[in-house]
Design a protein around this nucleic acid. Structure first.
Lengths: 203, 203, 203, 203
DNA sequence: AATGAATGAGGATTCATTCAT
DNA sequence: GATGAATGAATCCTCATTCAT
């Protein structure tokens, strides 16, 4: 009995589509989308240029699938972690996850930041932007830990988010990068600062 | 006594070279260099495309002059501020300056991050990279404030630097951005966290 | 039995690549490469400009393929002719071939002379330069005919080569050009001069 | 008594105009006019680009002045030499002069050949073209030496002219070039060939 | 499912030329 | 007599995209 075509399919290392996704991710890790050509992506994936169009329809579509995939994955996992019981440890876990995520999907931070800056905020926002969703998540956990004046919540959450992404991105780009746990501890100092200067949560 | 020709020179609104610099800065604030065309820069500056090449030789040169200018200015001012007497307030001033700087030179963070990622660290490094110079500055000030284990210094300084740049950049890109002082206070929480968990400096 | 697709391929008038080659050859016959634009070549070949780059990568590459093609063809044929038995007639045939060659590939002389002048002799010479290969060929044949002092061989061979190329090129450029056979006879006078003033070969 | 301004003028090494002429000559020796920029010429002459236009009005004008200057000089001198008494030696002298001329004005051959090829022969010819004037000169001298059928005169004269220019040009471009006298002797073989195969002139 | 050939719009750069000083 | 700044047309080249096979 020979292998069914179905099986053989699954055996073929990875599909063209996946290969392209990986290749694009790697290339977009250090360069802006405009600086990466479809040719380059295709040949890095070992397929022909036409295959990019066959699978993704356009360069922009490939790029935004990477962005969307990352955004969804980041949010999904972060939400999962955020439900844990001990808020301080939850925050730490969230940071750890974020660091690892950035290391695995290096293109993500780039693409996301670029998108943030280009922002035509005008668009009828269908979903809440990633940024808000993540800061909301952080705020929820912080609320379980300390009492913060409403006006400070967003800046603090944004700072935690930003420090995490920035550190992770910068260090993963250089072989002499900082250790993940060192970075996590440094960012957690923000929380330590809060704990030291604000009353504990009362709920 | 009439105005000297020297003075009249300076009066001519601004020179083509400066106009180009400003225009490029503005355009590069939200888009990568590859995504901004020379045509666009030239017409934003109100000069012909050829003038870009007359004054800067190439697009790359224009871009790197913006980067260099920013790096030097940032470092020079930060160094000046860092010499103040009260370390806690010094850090606050440094952050304030950094925030304002990013607001004035929005292209800078973009260009700098991009450059960090492209990193051909191989080059015979002539000057210490901006990143190291700034973190060294921060570490010096921190040392005057608290006692930190050697291994933690760099992660903490990097986090402060990163959080500042990231926040400043993100907020200055959106009209709904956070207030400068809110951001400064949020970042200063890192220092508060240190003060709460480490012994004070003993010098 | 119908024509194979292989055959049908070959039937399609001529491929873009070949059309470009021909067009470039024609245009380069009377103008330097710098004076012929890629646009011009493309439209003379009836293809789009992009096709030049798809097929040749750069203008320089197209030009040097023309040069290389010509050099190889010239040398190959000349070598073939040089093996004939009667040296005087061999020389005549070589000249006839050279004349016809120049008429068919008018761009060749231009490109080759230009290249000779630009000479970066520094390069690690991979093959013996065309010039030397041809003069060596001529010298071999002359040796079978007359006895020439070593020091005179190269000048004489060079003169034959040069006179042939120059005449052929000049005449093929003007409709009032000289007849091929007249030119051949004129150049052969060099050989006649040798025969009249040097002892016959003794081998 | 101080130097008069008039004198000082004459002292100034060479005028801008002459410097430009020399610089252009040198640069055009190995490259086509299209491949040499006005910038390059100006800076090789150590003057500003504007000065080219001040002195010559246009690049084309500068180039054709070089060509014209050379053509006139070559013809004038050659004519002078051609009037000598002994025809064989006259031809030799003409060749010697031509060789030296090409060595001194290396751009000339290039420019002239280019012009020959681009030839819109249609133009209402004001003066007889250089080529004809020179070959006529050669023919006159040859006539004093041997009897040549009318139809062979032009090919032979052209060959002498061509061989001379070509050899001179090629050798002056390379430091390993042939010696002038070797080249002259080689070209003179054409005359030897004539002498050996044609009756002497009878006039 | 995939590709190779071809395209044309756009982008960086060069360059002859003009002109005010 | 000479220059530096500026220009815009032309040039080389890149690249996302299309399409027949």
């Amino acid at each position: 009995m020979s292998a069914s075509p179905d099986t053989r399919q699954r055996v073929r290392a990875t599909s063209s589509k996946e290969r392209l996704f990986e290749a694009a991710m790697k290339l977009l890790a250090t360069r802006s989308p405009e600086a990466v050509s479809v040719d380059e992506i295709a040949s890095a994936a070992g397929v022909s240029k036409g295959t990019v169009y066959y699978n993704y329809g356009s360069k922009d579509e490939l790029v935004s699938q990477i962005l969307d995939f990352g955004a969804q994955k980041l949010l999904r996992e972060l939400t999962k972690v955020a439900t844990g019981p001990a808020p301080y440890l939850v925050l730490k876990s969230m940071l750890e996850f974020a660091m690892d995520f950035v290391a695995s999907y290096p293109a993500f931070v780039q693409l996301w930041m670029q998108e943030q800056l280009g922002a035509d905020t005008s668009s009828v926002f269908t979903t809440m932007p990633l940024h808000s969703q993540v800061t909301n998540l952080i705020i929820d956990v912080l609320d379980r830990l300390v009492e913060i004046p409403e006006s400070e919540k967003l800046p603090v959450a944004t700072t935690i988010f930003g420090a995490a992404l920035f550190n992770a991105r910068m260090s993963s780009a250089r072989e002499d990068g900082l250790e993940r746990d060192q970075m996590v501890r440094a960012v957690m100092l923000i929380v330590d600062g809060l704990l030291a200067t604000r009353p504990a949560a009362t709920n």
